[in-house]
Nucleic acid binder design. Structure first.
Length: 511
DNA sequence: AGTGCAGTTGACTTT
DNA sequence: TAAAGTCAACTGCAC
């Protein structure tokens, strides 16, 4: 006869260090660590085989780490409620533990179903917080301080050993193929697993990160100079707390040095630390308002774009053949690496939403699938921001030619991803259509006219912005979501011209 | 050496 | 994380 189980349900927190559910569950008695592969989740339109590949590598490594402690990770395939319910019938579940998750609409609904099941089965389900994201947040006031406190709290050490749980627990991790995922080649994907994550953290903080601040904007330099920790934070092979504390420790070590290098390091790590706050700041938005995965944040923009994407434009954009070299190079880089720097993500989204006038849901889903680090809580607020549908941000219509000139002046990045332009002289690399012999290139003409497409978009957005009831709803959105860093003056107290500029900048940054 | 002027730069505003 | 437009200050240069 078996005994009641304390189950630690691993989700996107594939590690044993700084894992409070695991540590706390162990105080109850022997623990069964469990990962549930949910075929229905992996059939959703925002997930992909490249993400599963990263997750599977991480799950595999987690399994070995747990096995070394005495109880390997149990891997079950199916519906979470059904699996818990069966385990409960056969063994009895004494307690269920997992990290609080702000995922997509599907995982939100699943968590509600698990919570309902647990309640009726009288199984206590505890969900410690994993990020600085606060469930049932009442007000954004004091949010940043709470984040600082949470991230400064002690990192929970990995358990020393696990008591083996009697029984024959499945351990096989299905392949993408077995899960029915569409083929999704990503030759330069970052490897999953905590060991890779720790190496990435180490090399960023000690070798690659010095010029982070200056090099993160350009795809020429960002692949190396960015932290590249995003997939590890998404899948939880590293915890945000560990990253925040490792960054703080490195800054501490640089403190007394007057070396010019130390100065550059400090500036870059301060910038990096700011981005760690952002991560949770954005996830908090989706936590507070899950509908923004599906609907315009500001409803005055409903109906602005057709709900149905032009298939020709969507395909050209997502496959990197719009005829705009810098856009196409960035999209191809993303498709091959599963990652691109933040600014280029914004440009790609802006181009789809403004120049191509595609509905953000379709283009957003493509990007979601291509990001190995897809984090719904960051992604969808960003998608809406770059599409102009939040109602509280200034329009940011990126000029793909200007961005190319700014970020890739020599065309080196373009050439490495768009070999069709090999015969094109350097002076035309950003605007091949101006080259007299452009027709001889195996490369399409621009899919839209750059200037006129941007102008049309700007006018359409502006028409809505100055509509009668736009302002009131925008005010409510600011109250709910915007950062408080600029102070309470955001809500309308009189301010000096300087303070006003400052707070507006903060708002456009943070929506 | 001062003046006028085209072109440039930068801060700020508008879309 | 934008870009274009406006305006004033500034610069280089011809006379």
């Amino acid at each position: 006869m078996s005994y009641p189980l304390n189950i630690v349900w691993f989700k996107r927190d594939l590690r044993i260090v700084d894992h409070r559910p695991l540590a706390w569950a162990l105080q109850m008695g022997p623990v069964l660590p469990l990962y549930i592969v949910e075929p229905e989740l992996w059939a959703q339109p925002d997930v992909s085989a490249r993400q599963w590949a990263f997750a599977a590598e991480s799950i595999n490594e987690l399994q070995q780490a747990l096995a070394a402690l005495g109880q390997p990770l149990c891997v079950m395939v199916g519906d979470a409620v059904q699996i818990f319910s069966q385990l409960h019938e056969r063994h009895g579940i004494a307690s269920l533990w997992s990290h609080e998750e702000t995922g997509n609409g599907w995982t939100y609904a699943r968590d509600l179903a698990v919570a309902a099941w647990a309640r009726q089965a009288s199984v206590p389900w505890r969900e410690p917080r994993q990020f600085g994201v606060i469930r049932r947040l009442k007000s954004r006031n004091g949010w940043a301080k709470a984040w600082d406190g949470d991230m400064a709290s002690p990192v929970t050490p990995a358990p020393k050993r696990l008591t083996p749980v009697e029984g024959d627990w499945p351990t096989d991790i299905p392949t993408a193929d077995e899960l029915g995922l569409a083929p999704d080649p990503c030759p330069h994907r970052q490897p999953g697993g905590r060991v890779a994550g720790l190496h990435t953290l180490e090399s960023f903080l000690n070798e690659r990160g010095r010029d982070y601040r200056y090099k993160m904007s350009s795809p020429v330099t960002a692949f190396n100079a960015s932290s590249r920790l995003s997939p590890h934070l998404t899948w939880g092979t590293l915890s945000m707390r560990e990253v925040a504390q490792a960054t703080a420790a490195r800054v501490e070590g640089l403190q007394r040095s007057k070396d010019a290098n130390a100065q550059a390091w400090r500036a870059s790590l301060a910038s990096f630390s700011g981005r760690q706050h952002w991560h949770c700041h954005f996830i908090q938005k989706l936590e507070d308002e899950p509908r923004i995965e599906f609907e315009n944040l500001h409803r005055a923009y409903d109906g602005l774009r057709s709900d149905v994407a032009d298939p020709h434009r969507l395909a050209a954009w997502s496959e990197g053949r719009t005829g705009f070299p810098f856009i196409d190079a960035c999209m191809r880089a993303l498709n091959q690496h599963g990652w691109i720097n933040f600014r280029m993500r914004a440009m790609l989204m802006s181009f789809a939403s403004y120049h191509l006038w595609l509905p953000w849901l379709d283009s957003g889903l493509h990007l979601a699938r291509k990001f190995v680090d897809y984090e719904p809580g960051i992604h969808w607020p960003q998608v809406q921001m770059q599409s102009g549908t939040t109602g509280i941000n200034t329009m940011r219509i990126y000029n793909p030619v200007k961005q190319g000139l700014d970020q890739d002046p020599t065309g080196r990045f373009i050439r490495s991803f768009v070999p069709e332009l090999d015969a094109l002289p350097d002076s035309f690399i950003h605007e091949p259509w101006l080259w007299p012999q452009a027709q001889s290139l195996p490369y399409p003409p621009p899919i839209v006219d750059n200037a006129s497409a941007a102008k049309l978009a700007r006018e359409a957005l502006y028409a809505i912005r100055k509509g009668a009831d736009h302002r009131q709803a925008a005010h409510a959105i600011v109250a709910k979501h915007a950062s408080r860093k600029a102070g309470s003056a955001v809500m309308g107290r009189k301010r000096s011209a300087k303070a006003k500029r400052g707070s507006d900048k903060q708002l456009t940054f943070d929506f």
